[in-house]
């Protein structure tokens, strides 16, 4: 059976990445790069939680890590939750 992710777990991952953000972003001044770095890190952690290979998953979706994260959440969240709200609250507005 495919593993799923719930709101609580996703919130925990976002908080974790938020705590790592100063280290992750220390060398980047570019807004797109900073957003992508954070979303890629969230994507890696989400994939680890779901027991899927993050590179293979991104390849399968043929897109950048940002979209790959969102689509993976679409496919594996259970029960449904507003993942954008959590991303905004915990992560993107802190950039």
């Amino acid at each position: 059976m495919k593993k799923t992710i719930d709101e609580h777990e996703f919130g925990r991952i976002c908080k974790e990445v938020h705590a790592e953000a100063p280290r992750l972003l220390q060398r980047s001044n570019d807004d797109s790069e900073r957003t992508e770095l954070l979303l890629k890190t969230v994507f890696e952690k989400v994939c680890r939680h779901l027991d899927i290979n993050f590179e293979r998953q991104a390849d399968a979706l043929k897109e950048d890590y940002a979209f790959a994260l969102l689509q993976t959440l679409e496919e594996r969240m259970e029960p449904e939750f507003l993942y954008s709200t959590i991303l905004d609250r915990e992560l993107l507005t802190a950039l």
Partner: peptide, 12 residues
């Protein structure tokens, strides 16, 4: 010229 990625915040 800049690249924009999905979810990138332009302003809050």
């Amino acid at each position: 010229t800049v690249s924009l990625i999905v979810k990138q915040v332009m302003y809050e």
